[in-house]
């Protein structure tokens, strides 16, 4: 049983530590990388808590897909001079204070509820032979294994919702692709919003954008 605690502490420490790191670092690339590590540790936690399918999905979709997408975003929007955009000191201080207050609140809530304390993983459940089809997989296909069938609990599983989710995902991706297509033409760049940026920087920007437009005819959607 000791392993469970040790592994839990390890994963928790990594997850929280790198989450904090994301906050403290100012370099956006490092942030992306720390985020990857933090989310991987989280998926570890999921496995520990017995949600292995979710852990797997977390790794595949979340870390593999979403964060890659984010990294793409970082690359696309990285400006040539590595501008350090740091918020003002007071904002950081205030946000920190707020975070602390929120943490105290959530922690006291988490700790306050007795039923969430100390049941610990049941030995029996751990050493049961792993089932070939995990309850979640069956659930997805439409057989509920967790409720006892006789009192009418064998409700249909979650097949239909997942179909809807996938269609939803497709639509969103198409939309994102459409939104992000580069409509920039040389002309539209010239009329800068008056209050926007210094005029002299505008020319080299135009050159740079044409370069991008030339080599990537249409930004392909994020890998699914």
């Amino acid at each position: 049983m000791i392993w469970h605690s040790v592994l839990f502490t390890l994963f928790a420490a990594i997850a929280c530590g790198f989450a904090m790191a994301v906050v403290f670092t100012s370099n956006v690339v490092r942030m992306a990388f720390y985020l990857v590590i933090s989310l991987s540790a989280t998926s570890g936690l999921f496995f520990l808590a017995g949600a292995d399918f979710v852990g797997a999905m977390q790794l595949m979709i979340y870390v593999g897909g979403t964060l890659v997408l984010l990294i793409f975003g970082v690359m696309l929007t990285a400006q040539q001079r590595f501008v350090q955009m740091r918020p003002s000191r007071s904002e950081v201080l205030l946000a920190g204070l707020l975070g602390a207050a929120l943490l105290v609140l959530l922690a006291s809530a988490a700790v306050g509820v007795p039923t969430w304390r100390g049941s610990g993983p049941k030995a029996a459940a751990l050493d049961e032979p792993p089932l070939t089809a995990t309850p979640i997989a069956l659930g997805l296909l439409g057989f509920r294994v967790d409720g006892d069938p006789d009192d009418g609990q064998n409700r249909a599983g979650y097949l239909l919702p997942f179909e809807i989710i996938s269609v939803h995902l497709l639509v969103v991706l198409v939309g994102a692709a459409y939104l992000a297509r580069t409509r920039l033409t040389a002309g539209s760049l010239a009329q800068q919003p008056p209050g926007g940026f210094e005029q002299d920087a505008a020319e080299d920007r135009i050159a740079e954008v044409e370069a991008i437009a030339a080599d990537s005819p249409g930004t392909e959607g994020p890998p699914t």
Binding site: V22, A49, P87, G96, G99, L106, V111, G118
Partner: peptide, 27 residues
Amino acid sequence: EPVGVAHYLIVGAVLFIAGIVCMATKR
């Protein structure tokens, strides 16, 4: 104590707050 739900909730809380602070401070 043995690892219970509370521990996980604490971790969830820390992640949540990190996210909030990140959103509030990152420019």
